[in-house]
């Protein structure tokens, strides 16, 4: 059997740094869409806690930590990032492997908020958008999921097919912010 080599969505494009902001690819990991059946949210949350140590996130929120995260991903949908899903989750939810479908990048730096302010029509400043908050919105014309993972760090997810555009749009904004220097 052929020995296939996995190629990450942003291979050859990242990491990059402009000014104080850096953009890097999150190492490829297991991604699982978890969509609770009607009225099964509590049961699913208990199963998630028992199996992976985090509760089911509320709307616009993420739970867990680096390596095992659950991110609210739209109406009735959560993305489990990291762990292989326990079979107990399937008792309460539709569980679908999405591992190769999304490009995951990490935007870091003091000016990361300023970079996103050029691209995303949502207020992502820390006063409004704290660690553990997440949004589904647009980055330019592309639908994305954005989660604050640290004081100056964001996890951004886009369709794998849009990886090059994602990097291009982010880099253009990073260059623009860097050119202005620190105010």
């Amino acid at each position: 059997m052929a020995d296939l080599i996995a190629k990450s969505p942003c291979a050859g494009l990242l990491p990059v740094t402009h000014g104080t902001t850096s953009l890097s690819e999150v190492e490829m990991t297991t991604l699982t869409s978890v969509a609770p059946y009607k009225g099964q949210e509590t049961g699913l949350s208990d199963a998630l806690k028992a199996a992976h140590g985090m509760a089911l996130p509320d709307i616009n929120r993420a739970t867990g930590k680096e390596g095992a995260r659950a991110v609210w991903f739209g109406q009735g949908q959560v993305m489990l990032i990291g762990p292989s899903p326990a079979s107990s989750l399937a008792d309460h939810a539709a569980v679908t492997d999405q591992s190769d479908a999304w490009a995951l990048v990490r935007l870091e730096g003091e000016a990361a908020e300023d970079v996103l302010a050029r691209l995303v029509p949502v207020d992502l400043r820390r006063a409004q958008f704290k660690r553990g908050h997440t949004v589904r919105s647009q980055l330019q014309h592309m639908m994305v999921s954005i989660t604050r993972t640290g004081d100056n760090a964001f996890l951004i997810m886009a369709f794998r097919s849009m990886a090059k555009t994602l990097v291009h749009d982010l880099e253009t904004a990073m260059r623009g912010v860097a050119a202005r220097g620190s105010a």
């Binding site: 739209g74 589904r136 647009q138």
Partner: peptide, 8 residues
């Protein structure tokens, strides 16, 4: 349709 948001 909240197309590029929560899809509701």
């Amino acid at each position: 349709y909240h197309e590029s948001g929560c899809a509701a």
